[in-house]
Amino acid sequence: MGGNNRLYEVNLTLTADNDPELSKLTDYIRQERFSDEEGWYRLGSVLIDMGQFEKAEDIYQVLLDQRKDEKDMALIYHRLGYIKDVQGKYEEALTFYEESLAIRQKTLPSNHPDLAKSYNNIGLVHDSMGNYPKALSSYEKALEIKQQSLPPTQPSLAMSYSNIGLVHKNMGNYPEALSSHEKALEIQQQSLPSSHPDLAKSYGNIGNVHYNMGNYPKALSSHDKALEIRQQSLPPNHPDLASSYNNIGAVYENMGNYSEARTFYERAVQIGEQSLPSNHPELQKCRNNLERVKNK
């Protein structure tokens, strides 16, 4: 790719073109990972998926230096923003996302889905920084664009409603949060298989809002549904299962049913210890919950 960037372009040839499993895998990767992109962009995406963020950043920085096309630059800025967001460098992430948005606002129709992606990711960064009003404004702009450009049952709309619901919950606007999460769930029920993990997330979000409102029977019902879906669709030691068990334990604890709470907290800790680092904050939260209920 030129210069001393220590990035090399290598042409690879399969040693066994007749391997059906390898062929199936490569076809899937081509379809799944941005099949309309050039190889270097695709490699950057794969590196992001692998958690190799610094290597992905190196590639995108080189591409940024070489590209003059605004469409390409908007995509590169967007990917760099994502990398910085995942790394917790929120101010840098915001700068890159806003660069990408500015280009897209100049070059795309006002209802283009890529604008919704920019607003959504800017909202995510503000959300992570605790800037909830700004996050809500960005999420609502993303939703407005999606409503103009996508079918009403598109799962991406559900994602926007979920994000809006989470911000309302963080702001203490529980009725608004509940309404948004219920809209997300309604769309998912129309567009996704009944055992899809995204439905479990929506049931969990609804359960959390009911919990914060003190509606413990409704919270328990929603968390039970989330757990049931996750048991069907996820490996038995998946962290999301630990989250469901922990949520159910918290409801039982607040209902005064400490023996049931302890059972669910123990299961949450057991799964967390199998799937998370020993110092992970979520695992520590589960352990603290278990210790607290043991003393009741």
Score class of each variant (00 low, 15 high):
M1T: 14
G2M: 10
N4M: 11
N5Y: 12
R6A: 13
R6L: 08
R6C: 08
E9A: 13
T15S: 11
N18M: 12
N18Y: 13
L25Q: 09
D27F: 05
Y28P: 00
I29V: 15
Q31E: 15
D36M: 09
E37T: 12
L43E: 10
L47W: 05
I59G: 00
V62H: 03
V62K: 10
L63W: 06
L64K: 10
L64T: 01
D65E: 15
K68C: 05
K71C: 06
A74D: 00
G81N: 02
Y82M: 14
D85W: 02
G88V: 08
E92P: 01
A93S: 15
T95P: 00
S100L: 03
L101K: 07
A102L: 02
R104Q: 04
L108S: 01
N111M: 10
N111C: 11
H112I: 08
P113Y: 11
D114G: 07
S118K: 09
L124M: 14
V125N: 06
V125P: 05
H126M: 07
G130I: 04
G130M: 02
I145W: 09
L150A: 04
P151R: 07
P151Q: 09
S156A: 14
S156H: 12
L157P: 08
S160R: 07
I164C: 06
I164Q: 07
L166R: 11
H168G: 01
N170F: 07
M171K: 04
G172R: 01
Y174H: 08
E176K: 14
L178T: 08
L178S: 06
H181M: 00
E186H: 07
I187A: 05
I187Y: 10
L192M: 13
P193A: 03
S194H: 12
S194R: 11
S195E: 11
N205G: 02
I206S: 03
N215S: 13
Y216M: 00
K218R: 13
A219P: 09
A219I: 03
L220C: 09
L220S: 10
D224C: 08
K225R: 15
E228Y: 12
R230G: 06
R230H: 10
Q231I: 08
H238A: 08
A242Q: 03
A242D: 05
Y245I: 09
Y252P: 05
Y252W: 14
M255Y: 07
G256F: 03
Y258K: 10
Y258G: 06
F264K: 12
R267I: 03
A268W: 00
V269E: 02
V269T: 02
I271E: 02
Q274T: 11
Q274F: 12
S275E: 03
S278P: 13
S278C: 04
P281R: 09
E282W: 02
L283S: 07
L283V: 12
Q284Y: 00
N288M: 08
N295H: 13
N295A: 12
K296R: 14
